[in-house]
Design a binder for these strands. Sequence first.
DNA 1: GCAATACTGAAGTAATCACTTAACTATTTT
DNA 2: AAAATAGTTAAGTGATTACTTCAGTATTGC
Lengths: 116, 116
Amino acid sequence: MLHDPAQLDLMFQALADPARRQMVERLSRGPASVSQLAEPLAMSLSAVVQHLNVLEASGLVSTEKLGRVRTCRIEPKALRAAEHWINERRLAWERRLDRLGDFLAETKDENRGKPS
Amino acid sequence: MLHDPAQLDLMFQALADPARRQMVERLSRGPASVSQLAEPLAMSLSAVVQHLNVLEASGLVSTEKLGRVRTCRIEPKALRAAEHWINERRLAWERRLDRLGDFLAETKDENRGKPS
DNA sequence: GCAATACTGAAGTAATCACTTAACTATTTT
DNA sequence: AAAATAGTTAAGTGATTACTTCAGTATTGC
């Protein structure tokens, strides 16, 4: 379910915006309210709420409203899913290079002592 | 330079599209030509070239043209940069939770034997 | 109760996106 | 030299984005 392409779309899309990454960065240091998230950003509160909704829809952030303040926190499970997708591709490539290296080494071995 | 926010924008943006992720996935299994990348995708070759240009601009993929065929390969260094950004944020959060756990445990310790 | 706080939602806009088709260039193959 | 292959480029279109402002709704402090 975490590898559902639509979910990955949403997560990577969410991370593609610098304002949203800044929000995630802030939340990685601990939970925050919407206004706290907005404070360092040069845009309206309304815009921040919209970004927050994107983050929440992506599963990267979860929020909980108590009284009039909405408290936001990071969802490490989702973060891990994105990380995992990238990692798998990188490893596939690197394993391939290893095998290629082995093959070349073997080929060289087989030619040991042979004249060119 | 790999942590330049503009570069991260480009990388996450590039990964946000399912067609482009499919192309990266294909390339993680080895280099391919443009037509080979296009083959499983339900869109014009032109569209694929445009996706490829996005991937190349993001640094995730590099290409080299020999004769009339352009050979594409994955750039693991860039992949690692995206992975790293996510990892840092997740770790910051998890370390924070650990410290919080320690703090709660200590607080409990200090109250050892005290009557409530 | 009244004002300040903390958001929320709708509507509008300019820019960017993911395509398409069609016309083109360069390289091989026959 | 002609035809097939591999890719490139430009222009156009409809959908989606990232905002804005403005008007609204709960909650909390005085």
